[in-house]
């Protein structure tokens, strides 16, 4: 089994790139792979708790919680989050917050890195 590192910089609302990243994480984990998901820039929006689900906007809190319970490793860029007013007490339980070197560290032993840039 391999390790996949996904970096996603797109916002939760405004594109479906994060939806894709979460679905890909689920598919990879289903096949037994380890997945690290790094969110930076506008992508840090996914780390917010208490997302309210509407049918017209992406809401990934529920699937993210389910995947983290199965071992998905999710880390948000702390500076990117703080700059947006997403403080530690707003953060979904289980999501870690580190600086950008965490992402590079995760790529070190990754078999594949999929980087999904922002808008």
């Amino acid at each position: 089994m391999g390790k996949l590192t996904i970096g996603c910089f797109a916002s939760l609302v405004g594109s479906t790139n994060l939806d894709f990243a979460v679905k890909l994480s689920a598919a990879a984990m289903e096949k037994g792979h380890k997945v690290d998901l790094w969110v930076s820039g506008n992508g840090t929006m996914i780390s917010l708790k208490d997302q309210r689900a509407f049918k017209d906007y992406s809401s990934l809190e529920k699937p993210l919680k389910e995947l983290m319970a199965k071992g998905l490793n999710v880390t948000a860029c702390e500076a990117c989050a703080e700059s947006r007013g997403y403080h530690a007490d707003h953060t979904l339980e289980g999501v870690k917050r580190f600086s950008m070197d965490w992402y590079l560290g995760s790529t070190f032993d990754a078999d594949r890195v999929l980087h999904i840039g922002g808008e």
Binding site: F9, S40, S99, G118
Partner: peptide, 21 residues
Amino acid sequence: SENPKLALTHAIASQSVEIYL
């Protein structure tokens, strides 16, 4: 967009990645 600056800040972060290795 924020992308170019994030590319640079992430690349610069290679200088402190050792703490994870």
